[in-house]
Design a protein around this nucleic acid. Sequence first.
DNA 1: GTCTATACAACGATAGAC
DNA 2: GTCTATCGTTGTATAGAC
Lengths: 242, 242
Amino acid sequence: MHTLEDFKTQVDLSRKAICEDLYASCRDQIQVKKKPTALRNLERIIDSTLELANRTGFQAMTLRDLSRHSGLSMGALYSYIGSKEELVRLIQEHGRHLSARVIYDCLEGVEGPAARMAAAIRAYVYLTHILQDWFYFSFMEARHLGREQMEAALQGDLRTEATFAGIISDGQRAGLFADVDPHLTAAAINAMLQDWYLKRWKYRRLEVTPDQYADHLINMTAAILAADMRASASPVGGGAAF
Amino acid sequence: MHTLEDFKTQVDLSRKAICEDLYASCRDQIQVKKKPTALRNLERIIDSTLELANRTGFQAMTLRDLSRHSGLSMGALYSYIGSKEELVRLIQEHGRHLSARVIYDCLEGVEGPAARMAAAIRAYVYLTHILQDWFYFSFMEARHLGREQMEAALQGDLRTEATFAGIISDGQRAGLFADVDPHLTAAAINAMLQDWYLKRWKYRRLEVTPDQYADHLINMTAAILAADMRASASPVGGGAAF
DNA sequence: GTCTATACAACGATAGAC
DNA sequence: GTCTATCGTTGTATAGAC
């Protein structure tokens, strides 16, 4: 799996497929029992929420806005969601599960630290590219969740980094990677990955494709982890590294 | 200037100094004319806004909350701010100006691409460390501004990256840096810098000091820009870079 | 210069007709 | 299963006493 097109053929991330998955996981909370109808309206609600909330924030989006944009009345809306707060929880939670599963699948069977690192980066770029609005929403609105849900979001981020840190540690033990700090380096990779969906406007303006971005990230990571460069993981002072 | 302590002695970023600066730039909009009183209350308002808004978002913070937390009544509040929306504009605008000035000062007189790169990274880490809450607020609440103000925020981000891209280009012309894409690499550095104030909890948990973070960032950047590694700026496929 | 009291709009949420 | 009408609450903002 080396391109976005490859990725798309292997993982179905259409809004329809995701909403079907989402419906299955919370059908007991939805009062509408006719599946095709429920599915269609749930998709509208999710779509509208992401679009409106990503424009000016979830708090700024009123349910009347959502009602108008989704084409459902206020009453109909409430036969799908329990409350406004539950809507944000639903989206976030499902996104985390989806993300974890996709990354896990993409790394399965890939052998060797270098290949695994490249595959993980590629998978994240493609995943977050296709679900840009979903990830942007999750990042920006994580604060509006309750304590236990926010802790879950935190853990999700840490697990992402743990994946990268683990690959780096493996590579170091195998003598393939430089002796940099695994956690700090993993955090840096994570930050660069998040930039892709947090600053969509910028990369659109630069006309950078997902494939180019993934390639560039892999190149930078390779440079950082190049074993022949530095011997020490401990910070050095004064920019002497140059 | 090679440590946070160095930085602190050269740049006064105490809340008091900043609010004094802020007061000077908008005293015509403040109805209270007694300077010491106005200064003290303005500082309370800014402090409370940053604390409350950074907890659950600016939209979620009500002016009643702000009134209670700052110790000022609703009426008193409105003799300092014109509206809730103007408050967010005030903070953002002033932060941008302050940031631009500090970075400019820190780079003045520094010669050579490598030293300039290190100095710029260091200045940003220290600046955003001291004004964590201010930068966190600016990033998260940029969406709540009007169109022209939001465009200004965008331009601020682009100018930051243009600074880094310029240094990279200079280094490439001098044959010191690898032939990577200046814009994409600058964007990556920017993303890693922003991670420092966007994920405070993580670096606090890892017990990473600002100096360590700056050093690590400089090391990574040095590795990415190391001239002897790669010859091509165009992306290569399939993780072959490793 | 700061306070309390209040105006008025808009919010999330629900009840009951269809 | 979806709608309209309406509830009670809470928001921003202001007026006028002190």
